[in-house]
Design a binder for these strands. Sequence first.
RNA 1: GCCCGGGUGGUGAAAUCGGUAGACACACCGGACUUAAAAUCCGGAGCCGCGAGGCGUGCGGGUUCGAGUCCCGCUCCGGGCACCA
Length: 925
Amino acid sequence: MGHSVPGYNRPLPPPHCPEIAPMQERYKPEDVETAAQQHWESEQAFHVTEDRERPKYYCLSMFPYPSGKLHMGHVRNYTIGDVISRQARMQGFNVMQPMGWDAFGMPAENAAIQNNVPPARWTYANIAYMKGQLQRLGFGIDWSRELATCTPEYYRWEQWLFTRLYRKGLIYKKLGTVNWDPVDETVLANEQVIDGRGWRSGAEVEKREIPMYYMKITAYADELLSALDDLPDWPEQVKQMQRNWIGRSDGVEVHFPYDLATIPKGGVLKVFTTRADTLMGATYVAVAAEHPLARLAADADPAIAAFVDQCVKGGVAEADLATMEKKGIATPLRVVHPISGEYLPVWVANYVLMGYGEGAVMAVPAHDERDFVFATQYRLPIKPVIIPGKWGQQVDNASGFFEDPSALLKRNFPIVARRDSDESLAWSHWQDCFAELGRVVNSGKYDGLRSSAAVDAIATDLAAKGLGSKRVQYRLRDWGISRQRYWGCPIPMIYCKDCGDVSVPDEHLPVVLPEDVEITGRGSPLARMPEFFECDCPNCGRPARRETDTMDTFVESSWYFLRYACPDNASAMADHRVDYWAPVDQYVGGIEHAILHLLYARFFTRAMRDEGLTAATEPFTRLLTQGMVVAETYYRDASGGKKQWINPAEVTVDRDDKGRIVAARLVADGAPVVIGGTEKMSKSKNNGVDPQALVERYGADTARFFIIFAAPPDQQLEWSDSGVEGAFRFLKRVWAFGHRRHAALGDGLAALAALDGRELPAALADIRREVHACLKQATYDFGKHQFNTVASAAMKILNALEKAPDVDGDEAAAVAAEGFSILLRLLAPITPHIAHVLWQECGFDGDILDASWPEASEDALKQDRVELMLQVNGKLRGSIRVDAEAPRAEIERAALASDAAAKFMDGKPAKKVIVVPGRLVNVVC
RNA sequence: GCCCGGGUGGUGAAAUCGGUAGACACACCGGACUUAAAAUCCGGAGCCGCGAGGCGUGCGGGUUCGAGUCCCGCUCCGGGCACCA
């Protein structure tokens, strides 16, 4: 850092590599890449330790699930991370880029069921294969830090932390709702529920409540929300998604006392509402099927019992619950309105869920769309109590009160209904403004108040009666971490008849997951293994039972980024090295993790901070969310209305004379296939491109270059075989240029330092200006993580250098040498192998890994005359050339004097002339 | 259903602050080299029009001297929705 022309101060090749074989004319990626990778290996080039002298840079890509082999999404993710890592290193940072394996999860169990392979063996085999693939791609990873979450060395610390958080009360047990497959007698993931049925058994899925452990993430809700404002280098969309997910709402908890005539045991029904101003418009309450009041009603009435049973059907995924038909049933039970004292009927509704909030809602059909739909369907009364704000403006008078709210209602309010006549149900349709804030009517003493004032008044009155108060509620729910699965981290708890729930003491950790196990897809394997669950109580020593649930695999990925700093520590979860490396400076991964993984990691970092394990509060300082990799799909209609998906590699396309695709055919039989559109690469659509085949054919650098060039990192990337060809062609041209010129480039090095300030022939000055303009742009784009245009800039530089006359004197050689050294350094993070070898061949100094990032020379960029676009009335009509330093008046004069201006001004006088320096002149007439 | 994105030539994309729309590529067309092909190199091109010119950034409005960019309304496509990871 710091020099203006750094990186090649000494003109001779370094003496420690004397045996360079004669440079090959043809670009052979496998030779180039093997040579570079062997060099890095022998130098231990990516092994890093803590170094207080240099600024640290921790660059992390989301670790992969070892599913078998790398897919293109992985290649994209790790290429982006590697590009950032390598550039940071060239900028002088002490860079750590680790890698590991998110090794617990369902696919291993599914593979076990299908192929009868134990999950552990399957997983370790996949890891070995995928590690080889990562190495072949040339990522600058410090493999000494590799970890796999399925090893006891890793998960023992997860269990250890669990016991700490459990004793602290940050982990607790309660009932949670899961998808139950009654045929396979097993809990299903949402993904395993297809159209309400179990994916293997086909049985109708039911909701079932089981005891589970929860992490109290809501204890940090406020902090997780407000700290988003301290993450300037996170994408705004991710922060917004997290804000909405946490969903802080300020509202009022309202208690509806039970009507003793219908609910003799007494009590109150609690609901939370953000719209207490509509309380006087509540016409019924609805409770979940699992709510005690629903059970009470079901016990007395078979019809209600049948409905409650019906509500159990179906899965628990919110998307399904939100789109299903809203259904309910009336009960004879009533609660008392806390202000009016009226009796409100209690309904049981399928869209109210026990796990969310209090399992009960107050319904205000006039001002909530879902309640409106429900009330319409069941002919429940609708009582309007708010004049929407935008209407209020028209009818309000100066006093701020309505003179005659009831008269107003008759004139303007379209939704008026009474309980006693069908005619009253003829309200007009729902309008979005009904849900807006406004002024209160039809509400007795609150009439005329604005919504916000009414909320205050009603909350005050409720508090005075002891029937409610203001409170903050979060949409965020505590994190249920229990899984009734085998291939996960065992939950370190023991159940003793006498001592109750006991966490496993430190000296008995880890609770090791047995690896010889039979997976059948029915029930939980660990619960069938007495040798696992039979144990002694750590308290009293009497026989006890071990917990057989395992943890959500999101738990492992919530702290792995800290463990990379000290993966070998067998006596502590974290040590001083964590303080050096944490937090991660740059995190790279898919946008699909925008909420869950990233929120859990933020929560865990805080929980660990409060345990004194790290000083960091936020885990990831900068975040880059990469887009998906998509590809064309092709299919043929098969029997039974199904589609037979055909891999793009087996298809050729027909084009018309303008290059438009008009048809596609299967290579094997030449007959047409249907073009199915562009979709995310997946097994099910058979449109994946295998990275392995790609690397074997073109080499890692071509794969990396294409991935970087084809789209900016945060957008989706459309796969294109011919685009890959183009990338390969470019690297061949780079190689050819280096080969043709490498001797001359070496000669040019001596003259380099003198280039600035020297009067060059115009042709050379133009080339040099182009090179430095591209460099300036590329460095700017790098800072924005817009790597596709960095790749473009590299291509432009090569185009410019190729225009120069071949070796033609010192000056030409110096311009070429400087340009090529800039080109190689721009390429070094993206295509490190070819950059490494050419850097060496051309005699540039040292290892390009540590060459400094080039800086654009202002001297090279200088221009005497510039071209300005000429507009007349905002339309482009020509251009003028002026001195770069020309004053405004002269530019105006030149513009008005131009032929184009004369032609299009039509003899009219100029009303105004707008000059945008360096860009354009607009004459308005 | 709710939350968050996106839509620019035949295709992927570029355009830093509201200032030359389409850089750089792919595909296509033409040419050179070749016995021929491949590879390579050179050139062309947004659309309409013979041309002057007109029209163009999903659709409809608006603000501005000037809008891909800002505002309002729509539409289509994608991601997430708490047990896929």
